[in-house]
Simulated assay, not measured.
Amino acid sequence: MITLEDLRLFGADIDKGLAVCMGNEELYLRLVNTVPSEERFEELSDAIEAENLDAAFEAAHALKGVLGNLSLTPLVEKVSEITELLRSRKDADYKKLVDELLRARDDLSELCK
């Protein structure tokens, strides 16, 4: 089971994350534990693979909200970059960026075991 110290070492801003959960550590940790199985990661990956930038933007934007509320900084930074690139339709290696995001998600998943 993940701890606040694990999250701190991961790079999360646990003070902000806890504030969103009104200081309820149990709720915060329970919500963090749901992140690795969040379906929008796969929706984003699939949309990028299909070159559907509209669907990719929707998935990335939704992830940004979830991850931002929990202040999971390493994930927020990556998904924010993807979201803004998609918003402006800039040329980018989206697959590489999504792979980096998924690796960070997998790192969090390991901590949640």
Rank of each mutant, 00 (worst) to 15 (best):
M1C: 03
I2F: 00
I2T: 14
T3H: 14
T3N: 14
T3V: 13
T3Y: 14
T3P: 11
L4Q: 11
L4S: 12
E5M: 11
E5I: 13
D6H: 15
D6W: 07
L9D: 13
L9M: 13
F10Q: 01
D13H: 09
I14F: 00
D15C: 03
K16A: 14
K16H: 13
L18E: 02
A19C: 12
A19I: 04
V20H: 12
V20Y: 13
M22N: 14
G23P: 06
G23F: 09
N24R: 11
E25L: 06
E26M: 00
L29M: 05
L31E: 09
V32A: 01
V32Q: 03
N33M: 02
V35M: 00
P36I: 05
P36D: 09
P36V: 06
E38R: 03
E39K: 15
R40T: 15
E42G: 05
E42W: 09
E42L: 14
E43T: 15
E43D: 12
L44N: 02
L44G: 01
S45M: 08
D46C: 08
D46T: 14
A47G: 01
A47C: 06
A50F: 13
A50L: 07
E51C: 08
E51Y: 13
N52F: 02
L53R: 15
D54M: 09
A56L: 10
A56R: 04
A56N: 06
A56S: 10
F57W: 09
E58W: 09
E58P: 01
A59V: 10
A59H: 10
A59Y: 00
A60S: 15
A60N: 08
H61W: 08
H61I: 07
H61A: 06
A62Q: 04
L63E: 01
K64I: 07
V66T: 15
V66R: 00
V66S: 07
G68V: 06
G68K: 05
L70H: 01
L70V: 00
L70T: 01
L72F: 06
L72C: 02
T73D: 09
P74Q: 05
L75P: 00
L75T: 02
L75H: 02
L75A: 11
V76A: 01
V76R: 07
E77R: 07
E77A: 08
E77W: 02
K78Y: 04
K78T: 04
E81N: 13
T83I: 02
L85Q: 15
L85S: 02
R87M: 11
S88F: 11
R89F: 09
D91G: 12
A92Y: 12
A92D: 06
D93M: 11
D93I: 09
Y94D: 06
K95G: 11
K96L: 10
L97P: 05
V98D: 02
D99F: 07
E100S: 13
E100K: 12
L101A: 03
L101N: 05
L102W: 04
L102P: 01
R103C: 06
A104E: 12
A104T: 15
A104C: 12
R105N: 08
R105T: 08
D106N: 13
L108H: 04
L108T: 05
S109F: 14
C112H: 06
C112Y: 00
K113Q: 15
